[in-house]
Simulated assay, not measured.
Amino acid sequence: MAAPSNHLNCEDFAEFQELLRVMRTIDDRIVHELNTTVPTASFAGKVDASQTCKELHQSLTEAHASRERLIKNCIAQTSSVVKTLQEERKASLEDLALLKKLRKEQTKVSGRVPWLYF
């Protein structure tokens, strides 16, 4: 799985979740990956099991690191938006639309971060 773009717009939470789902493919198919990586007795002499296991491990490690970077990047982006909105809110306490937008962004950071995707 290729690493996601560093310019991902994290505002669309559904899109963010879909990207994470796609990036989890290697984890979701781990049984299949192991079955195709570890040779059966009849193929033991034809495939270097040690090398293929190392390659699978490397793929898993890269996928996990890529997802972690994506999640941390989106947390940082959303936190920055929250900070900006908080400053705007201090200047305009009566603006209900601004308050609603601030609460929406705060919810993204605090309650809806998909930690289970690590």
Rank of each mutant, 00 (worst) to 15 (best):
Glu68Trp: 11
Asn6Ala: 11
Asp12Tyr: 01
His57Glu: 05
Val81Asn: 02
Leu56Gly: 10
Ser79Ala: 09
Lys72Val: 05
Asp28Leu: 06
Thr36Arg: 09
Leu19Cys: 11
Leu56Thr: 10
Ile26Tyr: 09
Asn9Asp: 15
Met1Arg: 04
Leu85Arg: 01
Val82Pro: 01
Ala3Val: 14
Asn9Leu: 03
Leu99His: 04
Thr52Tyr: 12
Arg89Gly: 00
Thr37Cys: 03
Ala76Ile: 10
Leu56Trp: 13
Asp48Val: 02
Leu56Cys: 02
Gly45Asn: 11
Glu88Arg: 14
Ala65Pro: 02
Glu11Tyr: 04
Tyr117Trp: 10
Ser79Phe: 06
Leu116Arg: 12
Gly45Val: 01
Asn73Trp: 07
Lys72Thr: 06
Gln51Pro: 00
Ala44Gly: 00
Ala2Val: 11
Tyr117Asn: 06
Lys54Ile: 12
Glu62Asn: 08
Arg112Asp: 10
Pro39Asn: 02
Trp115Ser: 07
Leu60Asp: 00
Cys53Glu: 11
Ala76Ser: 14
Ala14Leu: 10
Ala3Gln: 13
Asn6Val: 12
Met1Thr: 11
Leu85Glu: 02
Val22Met: 09
Ala44Phe: 02
Asn35Asp: 06
Ala91Tyr: 08
Arg112Met: 13
Cys74Gly: 07
Leu20Gln: 06
Ser66Glu: 03
Ala44Asn: 07
Ala3Leu: 03
Asn6Pro: 08
Phe43His: 11
Lys46Thr: 12
Asn35His: 03
His32Gly: 08
Lys90Asn: 02
Ile26Ala: 01
His64Pro: 01
Glu88Phe: 09
Glu94Ser: 12
Leu20Met: 11
His64Val: 14
Glu88Gly: 01
Ile30Gln: 08
His32Thr: 15
Thr25Cys: 06
Gln86Glu: 10
Cys53Gly: 03
Thr40Phe: 05
Trp115Leu: 08
Thr40Ile: 13
Glu55Trp: 03
